[in-house]
Design a protein around this nucleic acid. Sequence first.
DNA 1: CCTGTATGTACGGAGCACGAACATACCTTG
DNA 2: CAAGGTATGTTCGTGCTCCGTACATACAGG
Lengths: 408, 408
Amino acid sequence: MRSESTRPAPPDPTRRPYSPLISPNTVSQVNRARVIQALYDIGPLSRADLARLTEVSRATIGTIVQPLIDNGMLAEGDPQPSSAAGGKPSRPLWFSPTSQPIAAVHLLPGHVEAALVSAGGTILSTATREYPADTRDTGSVVDAVNDTLEDLFTPDRPTALGVGIAVGGIVNTDTGTIVQVNLAPGLAGLPIGRLIAERTRLPVYVDLHPRVQALGDRWFGQGRGLSTFASLYAGEALGVGLVLGGSVHRGPGGAGGEIGHSIVQADGLPCQCGQRGCWETIATHRWLRDQAVQLNLPSARTLTVGPLARLAAKGHPGAGELFDRYVDNLAIGITNIQQLLAPGLFILHGDVVAGGEALRGKLEQQVRRRTPAHPGSQPQIAFSALHDDSTLLGAAGLVLSRSLQLTP
Amino acid sequence: MRSESTRPAPPDPTRRPYSPLISPNTVSQVNRARVIQALYDIGPLSRADLARLTEVSRATIGTIVQPLIDNGMLAEGDPQPSSAAGGKPSRPLWFSPTSQPIAAVHLLPGHVEAALVSAGGTILSTATREYPADTRDTGSVVDAVNDTLEDLFTPDRPTALGVGIAVGGIVNTDTGTIVQVNLAPGLAGLPIGRLIAERTRLPVYVDLHPRVQALGDRWFGQGRGLSTFASLYAGEALGVGLVLGGSVHRGPGGAGGEIGHSIVQADGLPCQCGQRGCWETIATHRWLRDQAVQLNLPSARTLTVGPLARLAAKGHPGAGELFDRYVDNLAIGITNIQQLLAPGLFILHGDVVAGGEALRGKLEQQVRRRTPAHPGSQPQIAFSALHDDSTLLGAAGLVLSRSLQLTP
DNA sequence: CCTGTATGTACGGAGCACGAACATACCTTG
DNA sequence: CAAGGTATGTTCGTGCTCCGTACATACAGG
């Protein structure tokens, strides 16, 4: 029995976990994780590059990477030609396409997408399933996810490292339980993480869709190696995933990122949430379509950003002005994030990407105009380079960061 | 010469630094830092407590803490009575009052406050200096800071571990240069960090005032051991310091926290910064006084939160309503932070604290009303327990975290 | 006084990174 | 083509730190 009198405080999700001390046995684990991290951050690197980067001897790198090559995670690439000074050509190391894959799931209202992803970020195979979005039979949802995974797990492949699930709604990341999905209210309360873990006997990690997208950018996209950036989803809804200090930010229980309900117009339009002037009320498809109806734009009730941009480019009456207002409304919320956190880089996902360079350039200009000059840190707006794969790759990144004990 | 062809990317402030691998020599440094961290997070702990907490043997803790006791940083407290089960009484370890102190500086427009702080967070001595706030002679400012420090550095004390400087304005934390101080424009561009480092020959760390306050809460106040919280300064201005994942957040160059210019009323009152509807325009003394003048409250032009709260408590006509509107305006900005980051705890500093429990309770209620229920994470509002010392203690925490290589 | 319990310390053993030296492979130059 | 230079990757003995076990110390309770 432990002494109760001087016993440390009981566990509390808001308390910082005490990092255990490093023992000789764990040094190699920690170092292995850091080497893998460097590869993800920078790309293929030779042993000598890794030694310089991590400030250890080449001999040490050898002993760290050799087991990873032996167990099939890493593989040596073709020799790189040596420089003009001569020297033995280096053999860059990178994740083997035949290494243990990762299962990635995107759970949307009404359907499930899944993929098997290699450690290097290649999508090896995909599968999808439909389910009735308005169902209250949560068993059918779990079945849909499980069946999709079964399609991926063929006997000729090694078992997956784990399963990452991105949910288009609010999730408690500590318990892997769905809290709320707007267009599928029946999913509320479903402990999807535990149920899939029981069926697959694999570690399962569940997180919010915008945060998973940020993980995609962080591991496989423009966020690689960056300390701080924001991934913004904008389209029919708004959401943000924040990478701060190299880790994706999660509030207690995985809260945070509900940027759609931040207030940008205190006495503005009423929002579904009961407040007034949420960012959602002026920067989503709903607002865009309401305005388009008033302006008598074609197909106003199903308008999206791409068609609006094309109407504006053609000079359709009212379209250009609406486009500009939409961009400025987006800029307001982005500015607020920049003022508070100064991530510096905003990676855009969702339908907003259909706005093209006209939208990106204008948006960047508006955000810069609204953020007073801070030396050497002009905010940048970019479209995600991962396109439609960002969520599935992010779900793989979720598994990677947790399973390999890398930066979370 | 290094090979250029496979050379890793050049250094970039927005890139994450690659943590060097751990060698047998550095294991002890890392572990020592983690033991010290545990003491700061929890308070005095015996060797056995530390062993349980850090998951190493008591023997290891002994070898880690013995040098710290020998060099005077830690000291054994009085034996704690053993529990009913018996056993040898434990000797709690804590920072010795005679350990190497830390110099803390608060640079305000027109005057300088400084203190010598023990590692345990006790203010050992203080000193102040005035300087003309409207000066363009930056030498006089550096002299004022330096003279104040000289007052503290008496020959009978060991040399300080370092100097932490909190600046009431925008600062580039990478270079230690002042970017802008609202009421002392002459300070812009002053490389205060480098200049004080040259004079004192000590390591000097410079940061923004709200962020330093957050560090005070994080090391010595209610933020101890917490993973995530926000420290809000509210009074004549607004500013926020964020602790996320155990570290205080800094954007590139130390940007971020300029919450006063986040937009909460897109078509609202014009702000000094050129935009409309910044939070500043509805939640600072300026707004409060403008409203008080319109309501004909007594001493309206110099009104602060304390007198307003007392007028409201006495039922003075209009005061109660103004008080409520002020609280709700504060709640808007806090809600936005909660929606984005979900820090869960907001520690208030500045004149707003004079509003007392009436203000705190109402503010908490408003923020909770505005944030849709997230399971098990109701946001909390608290006043700083450090009162007027929070900035100086935070400046000490700034030095601690950097000098001891603890979590930044 | 003896047993039980808990704290703090001493000592041989094991794991891992380090440094130096070596094998390998390519370049340039005469 | 041979020699010298340069860079990569590997081998092997050394040293640092933590681990497990055992032991000394100190208090409670019967």
